[in-house]
Design a binder for these strands. Structure first.
Lengths: 233, 233
DNA sequence: CGCGCAATTGAGTTATATCAAATACGGTGG
DNA sequence: CCACCGTATTTGATATAACTCAATTGCGCG
């Protein structure tokens, strides 16, 4: 269970100006001049799969923008069961509740190789003071997180196990940049869908047998959307 | 299917100053002077059970603060299934996504008798311009909505049907002002928990037989918390 | 009193969980 | 390079829980 972290810190907000996903990122509409006033460290960091950005109960002084890769948000319950409540992808924000001074109510763990921007709370707060654009951006992030949570409930926690797996595959497919996407372990799939590992495996295996799902390399896959769509209901 | 609405509009924001749940409401920390500058209509409205505040797809110019009673948020899926994604109570906000100019992604329907404040978007926006307190309040509402959504997934969409019902009863109990609380129809319980009406009924009936749940009048009930807690796991 | 709706209950079916075993796979060390 | 080992996945058999369908009961209201 060794966890090695590869950190490639770029120290400095000037990188934000030329950010490749700036249009998706938190500071999308912030004018250049605002950046010039920042001298606080915004780090660009790479993590390998399984890295914990933060854990339930943590009180962290950062917000993370996902630049690439997937991050799972999981809650652990008293009895030891865990449930993945959401998966974040490119452009999503992790650790928003920290801005309100609240401890995290979930673990945030990388699924695959992930690059993030780690932004100190203080930067967000100081920019927020005089940038209505950032405010709007924050509210929009919050809103999209909420609507994603709704989707998670209606699409991924409802219906037969086969339907849930089919919908999860579509969900992952839609969020992918190329035609392949990250295929979670059956264990994680179960935790996302509220079913057992075995049920997730049986559904996945069946889709593979039918040729609707093809694995590519180790952890990636692609789907035949037209064939799989009916299975989503 | 006749819907009668009892509207008792109080026209005028000056009522906010003396609002009984001001400490819970959206404008909790807004200074008095700010209110004095508002001459836009904030209405105090009473609805009977089953009233639709808004429907999925609607584009409404209001935000609602729940003053009393319960409101269910439900999403309808293509195949006709519906799922209740959250229940709002005193102090919660409904229709937040309208502030971002988005259409509603769910229905908001009163469960019991409900009183709300109906606040025009324009009021929120104009107050937001120069009131950092309102910004904070909005962000906090959003955050608590998100954390409620997480709870909904981990507590009410996971485990056996009996566990889900038990957790729902605890959830409703905790949010009630007195020792009794609103008991939803078995149909709504099913839509909240992702189980069938019959399964909800069987669990409810069993708890009643065991004396852990007692119905009070038509739609209300109270529970023996100590007895029911173990059933939540 | 009887009507209509909601809740409850029961029997039979089906899907999922559970338990157990076999297989595939990647990484390690000889 | 290959054999081996630990882990993840797949598969199967069985038990159990939930769904489905149908009938009955209970209750408020006209």
């Amino acid at each position: 269970m060794k966890q090695k972290t590869i950190e490639q810190a770029w120290r400095g907000a000037e990188r934000c100006k030329s950010c490749g996903i700036r249009h998706l990122a938190l500071f999308a509409d912030i004018p250049q001049e605002s950046f010039d006033r920042i001298h606080l460290p915004i780090d660009d960091i790479t993590f390998e799969p399984g890295h914990r950005l933060y854990l339930q109960g943590d009180d962290i002084p950062f917000v993370f923008t996902i630049r690439s890769g997937l991050v799972k948000l999981a809650q652990r319950m008293r009895n030891g069961d865990r449930r993945i409540v959401r998966v974040l992808g490119q452009g999503d924000l992790a650790g928003l509740e920290g801005l309100e001074g609240l401890p995290m109510d979930h673990d945030a763990i990388t699924l695959d190789h992930v690059t993030v921007c780690r932004i100190p709370k203080s930067v967000v707060k100081s920019l927020r003071r005089d940038n209505p654009e950032l405010h709007m951006a924050l509210l929009q992030r919050w809103q999209s997180a909420l609507s994603a949570a709704n989707t998670w409930i209606t699409q991924l926690s409802t219906g037969s196990s086969k339907k849930r797996v089919a919908r999860l595959l579509m969900f992952l497919h839609e969020r992918s940049v190329d035609d392949t996407f990250f295929l979670p372990t059956r264990d994680d799939m179960g935790a996302m869908l509220g079913i057992t590992t075995e049920s997730a495996s049986k559904a996945t295996a069946e889709f593979k047998r039918k040729g609707w799902l093809k694995t590519v390399g180790q952890n990636r896959a692609c789907i035949d959307v037209d064939e799989l769509a009916p299975a989503c209901e």
